[in-house]
Design a protein around this nucleic acid. Structure first.
Lengths: 146, 146
DNA sequence: ATTAAATATTTCGATATCGAAAGAATTGGA
DNA sequence: TCCAATTCTTTCGATATCGAAATATTTAAT
């Protein structure tokens, strides 16, 4: 039975950290459910969504946008390619670069799924009032920097 | 170029979701750094920490506490066992149950690492004032339910 | 007591995820 | 022009992570 003595401030930080992770987890798992319906993982969806809203992208750009390593993007794009939801094209102007495109099947899939995605998130976050959401957004924005 | 029309409220929920994930990611990666120092992953640390503070636990209890599947806990405990940081013991009273204990090496490791862990978190969250932290905790607590 | 349902763990097969190293192409100096 | 540093992607070897199925054991209900 250890009783490490931490300051009040440290204890508060620890608790806050746990709450942050827990809240993220909960929201994520609501989303997980609806994605599973279409046999998509989070990362697969994140890439499809980026392409859907921003058009064809390099893999490095995708990596930056979805906050995952380049190596990981390679893997996930592989799996999306196997499902014929995206295709790769080597850039003509810079032959190191691989541009990833949505196929028409990928585009249709996103068109179908995205509205539901938004709904799920909105419903899940509706636990908070409008004002609370704005407050939370402020705080998270600040915390997300640094 | 798609321009899906979402309500103001939906747009706000989407943005908030992104901020939540991003903040979690950032804090997590600070922690990742310090754990890497001792060749521990997050899940490995989470299990060690639980045992350190709460004493020997069933794997299912660990699963509930660290918010991961039973299958995953089996894997992570395997890896901790290989490092001789924990040991398994079949319960005498209920032979389905496997109790996981810290070894003395595991205990020493935690005693060394945990204070640093707290410091890292405290420093990272110090971006927010005391009052902001309390506010954030309230909001996340509410969001984490439901 | 016997069987059915519930619980704890492991195994299996996918996919995710990382860091490091390797390979290919481009760019910026000297 | 040529080489060194940089950039983009892939490969490799670990570990994480899940859901579903399989095992073993316990509990509950008849």
């Amino acid at each position: 039975m250890k009783k490490p003595k931490f300051s009040q401030r440290q204890q508060q930080a620890l608790d806050l950290y746990v709450k942050l992770m827990r809240a993220g987890n909960r929201v994520t798992s609501s989303i997980h459910h609806h994605l599973q319906h279409d046999n998509l993982t989070h990362s697969q969806f994140a890439i499809l969504e980026t392409l859907y809203h921003l058009g064809p992208q390099n893999q490095s750009e995708l990596s930056r946008k979805i906050l995952k390593s380049n190596a990981n993007v390679t893997t996930v794009v592989d799996s999306l390619e196997k499902k014929h939801l995206v295709s790769r094209m080597r850039s003509e102007t810079d032959r190191r670069v691989v541009k990833v495109h949505l196929t028409s099947a990928g585009d249709e899939m996103l068109a179908k799924i995205f509205p539901r995605h938004v709904e799920v998130i909105e419903k899940r976050l509706a636990i908070l009032t409008d004002q609370e959401q704005q407050q939370l957004a402020e705080l998270l924005k600040k915390l997300g920097k640094g």
